[in-house]
Design a protein around this nucleic acid. Structure first.
Length: 136
DNA sequence: GCCAACGTTGGC
DNA sequence: GCCAACGTTGGC
């Protein structure tokens, strides 16, 4: 079991949209490093859902429903892939970026080190801590 | 709205 | 193969 974090601008595709759709194909990733992370995802992996830009908080938990497959929104023959994600549930309390930065135990969190990457790995200890911070 | 970080493109 | 120019992302 591995842990990940995906980012979405809520104005483009929000957690509420994700719940409404009861999951979605995570298409549109056009960065090789992010793609490599998508390729490493396995069904059942847990995925933190992060709202970037306007909210800057982890808002929910998703899981991988299907592994990487060619991204249907990309040109045929292109290297881009998508995984299927399904919602697990919202965090009782969103965990703000500021809270992540404030916790010394998250100093190595990939999100903080590579703020522009949209699909990031999360260590098990980091995942547990973020889930604890997001619990009621 | 600005700017830093960083990936990509294209000229040489 | 290098590097300047440029575009995009995302925090502030």
């Amino acid at each position: 079991m591995n842990y990940w974090l995906v980012k979405s601008e809520p104005e483009a595709y929000s957690w509420a949209d994700f719940l409404r759709d009861d999951g979605t194909a995570w298409t549109g990733v056009r960065n090789y490093q992010a793609r490599n992370n998508l390729n490493l995802m396995q069904p059942g992996d847990q995925v933190l859902f992060y709202h970037s830009v306007s909210e800057k908080a982890v808002v929910g938990l998703a899981e991988v429903a299907a592994p990487a497959a060619p991204d249907a929104t990309a040109e045929a023959g292109s290297p881009w892939v998508a995984v299927a994600l399904r919602p697990v549930g919202p965090l009782a309390r969103p965990v703000a970026l500021a809270a992540l930065k404030a916790d010394a135990r998250l100093a190595e969190l990939a999100l903080l080190r590579q703020s522009r990457l949209s699909v990031l790995p999360v260590r098990p200890d980091e995942f547990d801590l973020i889930m604890a911070l997001g619990a009621a």
